[in-house]
Structures are given as structure tokens and as C-alpha cells.
């Protein structure tokens, strides 16, 4: 069980690290937001699943309820995070941020 939990959490941390790398290295607002949204949806859910499994080590009704609540956070993130990314991107487009093209300077 501990090995499975470790795989989940380490996998989540790996994707978070890649997301942070993308936020730091990508050239403009839209691609940075893309990296941030990806790490939000996959990595956060992996870490949350790992924590919920760790909580289930000795099975009882109380622990099952707590794990269910933890998984509800994942469902909430799945709904809320893409919406937030969508709102940010649309606002940036309306305010007139030009997307980056090859050969432009980094911003």
C-alpha cells in the first residue's frame, strides 16, 4: 500500500515540477497559463488520490468518509480550475495581449 501511495504522490510532484518549469520558461502569458492549468488538473488530483489512499490504510467507516471528502476536493478542482483558466485567458484576449510568435522577443 505504501508503495502505491508513494507512486501516486511522487507522480503528482513530478507533474507539478514540470508545470513550474513551464511557468518559468515559457515565453508569454498564454503558454504559461497553459502549463499552470495542466499541473493543476492532473498533478493535484494525483496527490489528492495518494493522500486519500494513505488515509484508507486501516479500513473503517470514519476513514472511508474522510477519504470521500478528500476525493470531493478533486472533483471540485476538476470543475473550478479549467473555468478559472478560461476566464483568465478570455480576459487577457479582450484586454489585447498579443500571443507570442516565433522570432518575437520573450516577455
Amino acid at each position: 500500500m505504501t508503495i502505491v501511495v508513494s507512486i501516486f504522490i511522487l507522480g503528482g510532484l513530478f507533474f507539478f515540477a514540470i508545470g513550474v518549469l513551464g511557468i518559468l520558461r515559457f515565453p508569454d502569458f498564454y503558454s504559461r497559463l497553459h502549463a499552470a492549468g495542466k499541473s493543476d488538473s492532473l498533478a493535484a488530483v494525483l496527490v489528492i488520490a495518494g493522500v486519500a489512499l494513505y488515509n484508507l490504510q486501516d479500513l473503517s467507516l470514519d476513514n472511508l468518509l474522510v477519504s470521500l471528502k478528500i476525493m470531493l476536493i478533486a472533483v471540485f478542482i476538476y470543475v473550478a480550475s479549467p473555468t478559472a483558466t478560461h476566464a483568465l485567458t478570455k480576459t487577457a484576449l479582450i484586454l489585447g495581449f498579443e500571443p507570442w510568435e516565433k522570432g518575437n522577443k520573450r516577455r
Partner: peptide, 27 residues
């Protein structure tokens, strides 16, 4: 981009459909 701005200004009620749907789901 100009088209998007015009469409947003023409739309009377609040934000886009995606935001409205997910807010209605989450509230």
C-alpha cells in the same frame, strides 16, 4: 481579437456560457 471584444460587448448578461454553467453547478 476585435471580433471577440465586440461579441463580449454585445452580450448583455455577465460572463461567457462556460463560466455561467460552472458557477451554476458549483454554487
Amino acid at each position: 481579437m476585435k471580433l471577440l471584444r465586440e461579441r463580449t460587448e454585445k452580450q448583455r448578461l455577465g460572463e461567457s456560457l462556460i463560466i455561467q454553467t460552472s458557477v451554476r453547478l458549483m454554487v
